[in-house]
Nucleic acid binder design. Structure first.
Length: 442
RNA sequence: GGAGAGGUGGCAGAGUGGUCGAAUGCGCCGGUUUGCUAAAUCGGUGACUGGGGAAACCUGGUCCGCAGGUUCGAAUCCUGUCCUCUCCGCCA
């Protein structure tokens, strides 16, 4: 099997903490450039340094005020007591003044800090999307079809599988009804993915489809911005999730996990909602870029030294799922310029879609990211080693098991036959209840 | 949705303005004794963050759901908010 391990070199776990940025300013700056992020690292360093100075002064004033407060109970008479009170008040006022100054600076520093992306795996290709590197291909090879190829929209119409018009009428463009065998395929894909993942020791979950703004931000999404991908609920601090990564990662926010529970693997089924703001004009016919779909997501919390292996493991599982469906695909090591903020490294599976473009194209169907401690810092998820003092941040990883809408495209288009029928992948037949969609009458 | 009660350390649970980072018990770590296990007994045992030190360690600050407020001083009083529980209503 071609499931070779990728990149076994084990770099020291990167820690994008404030101290690290102060001590490695140039490295962080270069990293931002590689990722195409404009973050004023120098300004941040200056602000952060000033914050530290101010913080010390504030703590000294607090200390003095505490001493004064404690002495009041022991004061001999009212006059002395009053004098001490005034003294204490003055000290607190001085402290408050410095504190509000600090708050202003810290807010600016915080804004820069939050805009900084994670560090990057040394082997991730540097550059824009065009520099992304193909790591390997799936077991099934792309075969030219010897008949006029239809795309999934045409096939779905022929077999009455998807109602785009109905979806648009009730919710707008980008929504759809799955019908008939498409529904059975969705359910089969859920079962198929869950069967593998549960067997691999993942804890299966069905997650909320909504989450608080704080959780979205911890994972690295920006709700309610002008270009946001996120639908928000009016009058509530709730958002429709774009992926179960949000809810699965958020599940442990603020928690301290015992070391011996790690690595902790979860998988979750959720609906995913995306506004796709700014995505107009990109190739997005049919099911490819929709506002709602179902996804089975993998998520893991690991020790820092486990995350790289877990990342490769996620990628292997994705490969097994698509090999098992008989779909040709390639694995891409995403280039730095195309990485989102949280990802340290990201592998994508791109499935062959015969109906895409003029004569077939690869289209992204899964994505597995190692976010190291980036999300854990924002969500405050730590682990504790028995017998050791203190706690450390866990690493988090997420990967798509099956994104139903895109998997449907790949299945429908790859499994179309010369006679117009669609063969149901063998692995799904036991749930779909048939081997073929449509009759071979021709 | 309405009414009430409550959110304290790994857990349970005291604490209603200062001596409280917080009693007590459990758990955990270490010592002693008996020793087959167990029991008994003594001591230790929260997190975050700053400074000093090679280190052991020493020394500040912050934290009692979260955010504000009152006060010289807040776990304790006030406001908002989130969550949990009980009862009622509604409902798949």
């Amino acid at each position: 099997m071609a499931r070779t391990r990728i990149a076994c070199a084990r770099p020291v776990a990167p820690m994008l903490d404030k101290r690290f940025i102060l001590d490695n300013t140039e490295l962080v700056q270069t990293n931002c450039e590689h990722r195409g992020v404009k973050a004023d690292v120098l300004r941040y360093v200056a602000l952060e340094t000033e914050c530290r100075q101010l913080q010390q002064e504030i703590e000294e004033l607090s200390r003095q005020a505490n001493v004064v407060s404690k002495s009041i109970g022991k004061a001999k008479d009212d006059a002395e007591r009053q004098q001490r009170k005034d003294e204490g008040r003055t000290l607190r006022e001085q402290k408050d003044e410095k504190q509000s100054h600090l708050d202003r600076i810290a807010a600016e520093a915080g804004a820069i800090y939050r805009s900084m992306p994670n560090l990057t795996h040394p082997e991730a290709p540097i550059g824009d999307e065009a520099h992304s590197r193909e790591l390997r291909q799936g077991e099934v090879e792309v075969r030219p079809l010897s008949f006029p190829v239809l795309d999934h929209v045409e096939l779905a119409e022929q077999h009455d599988l998807i109602d785009f018009e109905g979806g648009a009428r009730i919710a707008g463009n980008g929504f759809y009804f799955l019908k008939n065998e498409a529904v059975l395929l969705e359910l089969a894909l859920q079962q198929y993915a869950m069967e593998l993942l549960v067997g691999e020791g993942f804890v299966p979950t069905i997650t909320p489809d909504l989450a608080r703004g704080e959780i979205l931000q911890g994972i690295g999404f920006i709700p309610r911005g002008p270009e946001t991908q996120i639908y928000s609920i009016e009058n509530h601090d709730l958002n429709l999730v774009a992926t179960a990564e949000i809810t699965l990662g958020g599940l442990y926010s603020g928690q301290v996990i015992d070391q011996d529970q790690l690595p902790l693997k979860l998988c979750g089924i959720s609906h995913c909602f995306r506004t796709e703001a700014g995505a107009a004009g990109r190739a997005s016919r049919g099911l490819y870029r929709v506002h709602q779909f179902t996804k089975i997501e993998m998520f893991a919390f690991t020790l820092p030294e486990q995350s790289e292996d877990m990342h490769n493991y996620f990628c292997d599982l994705e490969c097994r799922l698509f090999d098992g469906l008989g779909i040709p695909y390639r694995v891409i090591d995403t280039a730095t310029g195309d990485l989102g903020g949280p990802a340290y490294r990201k592998f994508d599976l791109e499935a062959w879609m015969p109906g895409r473009g003029s004569s077939g194209e690869y289209g992204e169907v899964t994505s597995a990211s190692n976010c190291t401690d980036y999300q854990a810092r924002r969500l405050n998820i730590r682990y504790k080693v028995k017998g050791e003092k203190g706690t450390n941040f866990v690493h988090t990883l997420n990967g798509t098991a099956i994104a139903i809408s895109r998997a449907l495209i790949a299945i429908i288009e790859n499994c179309q036959q010369a006679d117009g029928t669609i063969v149901v992948p063998e692995a799904l037949q036991k749930w779909v209840g048939k081997a073929r969609i449509g009759s071979a009458a021709g």
